[in-house]
Nucleic acid binder design. Structure first.
Lengths: 164, 164
DNA sequence: GATTTTATGTCAGCCTTGTTGACTTTCCAA
DNA sequence: TTGGAAAGTCAACAAGGCTGACATAAAATC
């Protein structure tokens, strides 16, 4: 009874528990992206487009550079995605007023519509999960995820409007 | 005070809270994969190889078909990955004894060594996160993730050895 | 015993999304 | 006025998804 980690309160740190956490992340992330992925297929967009749309919606008038640091990809990679979203009329690229080298990105009504469709699908799943497990579990979920982020990403994360 | 969702216990279901959950998943998953990704670079392998190695280690002697259903990719895609792991001597493919059509996959010592290196890196991050937040938060984390999975994936998830 | 189904492997070709490198244009700021 | 930052673009490449077609062996079924 008193073998292994010793105290019951440390059982959650056994390698088996950690492994379960790892697999939970893997399977849950698949579920997490499944619904948007299905929607994106109808528009022939991919996850990269979804990510761009999401973060432009979160921070309207954000610059390309800022988006790059959030998404962690090269400008060439982002540019290809952004190019198409702009050409398709989902994103507007506004020349900066103070600094005219900067481009400020905003969603057009068409872009906002797709964003709403995607995020609604994702929220439905998350709402169902949250409702199933209750507020305490949700608080724990958020704490673990935040602790698992890279520190620089944690900074981006805390910038959301409703931050606590 | 009594506006919005009404009761305090439902605040975790506001769209803003759900959005924070969505972003938390995005940033945390990036952190979650960052350490293995760095290791894989040294061997010129990708995440696909990591996933295959992980699930072969979890269920030794698993068949190709079983692995396909867990990973959710096409056999052509998996075959390319598996081919290289076998050629490189990380995975052994054994002809089935009862059914000779089946191939049973096991890690070689070399494969097990890489698996250990990868999963140790991932466990270190998860252990740090778990330790930071404590057992109750970890329980909540696992509950939310499980609730967020697709049901068929939840089935694969519960098959782990230490299942509760 | 012949036929069908299942499990696997493989070839070819396509797409998305990541990468590096090189180069240009614009334009702020020292 | 000039250096360097911000942005855009072209080209080429790789990983890892996908589809479709086809081959083989063995099991299962008729």
């Amino acid at each position: 009874m008193a073998e292994g980690g010793g105290s019951d309160s440390l059982l959650f740190l056994t390698d088996e528990q950690l492994k379960k956490g790892i697999e939970a992340m893997f399977f849950a992330y698949r579920g997490f992206t499944a619904d948007p992925d299905r929607i994106l297929e109808n528009y022939a967009y991919g996850r990269a487009h979804h990510r761009a749309i999401h973060f432009i919606n979160r921070s309207p008038e954000t610059t390309v550079n800022n988006l790059l640091s959030i998404l962690g990809v090269t400008k060439q990679s982002l540019n290809r995605v952004l190019r198409r979203l702009i050409d398709d009329g989902l994103v507007e690229s506004r020349v900066g007023k103070r600094d005219k080298r900067e481009r400020h990105l905003v969603l057009t009504p068409k872009g906002a519509a797709l964003e709403a469709e995607l995020s609604e699908a994702q929220r439905i799943r998350m709402r169902a999960a949250f409702r199933t497990v209750g507020p305490d579990a949700v608080a724990g979920f958020r704490q673990v995820l935040e602790a698992m982020m890279d520190t620089d990403m944690r900074h981006h994360f805390s910038l959301l409007k409703d931050s606590e």
